[in-house]
Nucleic acid binder design. Sequence first.
DNA 1: AGATCATATGAATATATATTCATATGTTGG
DNA 2: CCAACATATGAATATATATTCATATGATCT
Lengths: 107, 107
Amino acid sequence: MPHLDLSISDDQAIAIADMFRLMGDASRLKIVLACLGDPRCVSDIAHVTRLSPSLVSHHLRLLRAARILRSERRGKQVFYVAADAHVRSVIADMVEHASEDEAGAPH
Amino acid sequence: MPHLDLSISDDQAIAIADMFRLMGDASRLKIVLACLGDPRCVSDIAHVTRLSPSLVSHHLRLLRAARILRSERRGKQVFYVAADAHVRSVIADMVEHASEDEAGAPH
DNA sequence: AGATCATATGAATATATATTCATATGTTGG
DNA sequence: CCAACATATGAATATATATTCATATGATCT
């Protein structure tokens, strides 16, 4: 696999960076990962991520606005899940690849 | 491919989010993409990305510190390139996958 | 050494954004 | 309707960070 030379438009760069920026916060990343499988309600997400329900809710709003997660109400609770299979695979791949790393020889 | 349930430690989340955060800025993303192929000198990067050399240099420092790029001096110029093949493939995959999207039905 | 080019650095600033707390909205069950 | 619960929202705050400008460092050439 030779040198690849990815060049993208400014608009593309902004759009892609936006997606990365959302994953670029540990709290949000954990929230997304918690919603990759079956739908989870907010309090559940708060519990497994050990974040306050309020904070989770704030982040969920951003993730829903970016169409990374979608929400569905069931009674009192609102369940969140990855918006679609594509988002699921993209996120999973990103994390999978990124976590292969961790080599980290010292500076 | 059934439901996957990625759970990661707090430290892992922070490490992975750190990587994403660096890609979460359009200027930096363009800089990284410019360095995925052959090594490029700073002024070259500034030119193709249409960013000021100073700004590019600031970003390059972060990217080098994160071991995403490495630098090599040749005479007056300093060339930057993806740190290794793994970084290259991870970044390329991330962008490739993320750019497949762009569907974006209105809110 | 001095001049010039290339890159790096530091301060200053403006802006974004993560988090908390208080409060509101919405939903179910008695 | 009222109480209890679940989620959402708004303001306030603290912190991070992107960018610019001015200046410094480093390298080459005469």
